[in-house]
Amino acid sequence: MKVCFYPGCALHGTGREYGESIQEVSQILDIQLEDLDDWSCCGASSGHTTNEALAIGLPGRNLALAEKIGATEMVTPCPACFVRLKIAEKKLKGTGSQPDLGFTYSGGIKINYLLDYLCDPELLKKIRDKITKPLNGLRVACYYGCLSVRPPKMTDAKNPENPQNMDRLMEVLGAQSIPWSFKTDCCGGSLALTRIDIVRRLVNRLFLMAVEAGADCIVTACPLCQANLDTREAEAAQVFQQNYNLPVYYFTELLGLAMGLSGIDSWLGRHIVNPRGLLEEKGLLRL
């Protein structure tokens, strides 16, 4: 199965292990993710913060590229890219006379968020068959963040206040997904550089709530959330005099772990907060 893939900038940088684990996991599942040729940045927060037309034009170029090669579907692993592509798709499709941006897009490409794409019932079945080492005894807090579900009018999320896909996936892997009320609360990703004080406070709140709910670790499906939580955890704990030490995994890393993929060592090697201790303690990773 071939699918057009829009990786997004973070996957080549701060979210490198996410990208690597996605590639390996998709190969096992017989999904060929083909990078959109010559893709460009979606503009992210900076786009829609400063210029409305630019925020449509930047992701729009990628939609036009995908249309040119005849793609009907597109998968992206980054919620920020996902929501910008979705909004651009809806806005460009809706207007009869398109603004002149140097490309044409007639509309109709379905944009999928990787997590939701993998939670298709058929793929879930396939995943279940491929599991060799179930993650028994691992209690995970599934953290969806903001932009994969909000705003629901743009993302078409069915249950924006309490999404379930990642929880379902984790149960399939054998892990225990614990209920908690902060699964879609903001981590402050867009303020990561400008207001670190705010970020620390939001990150601290998330970790405290996850600990209170009895989680061993947090699982994300967003390169910005993971980077934000992973890099700011130690600082937040120090500033607010807390004592938590939760690793933050990508859901694809846990997929790879449960399927016994070889890349797991190199993915985990890129984390800031020690990700191995917990897995070794639970007997899920060899010492």
Partner: peptide, 25 residues
């Protein structure tokens, strides 16, 4: 840990992107 690549990578048709910047002022 290899999370911040040292060298930048450009896309091939940067001009198209710059054009969007220009058209949207």
């Amino acid at each position: 840990k290899g999370k911040l690549p040292l060298l930048p990578k450009s896309i091939r048709r940067v001009k198209e992107v710059r054009n969007i910047f220009k058209k949207t002022k």
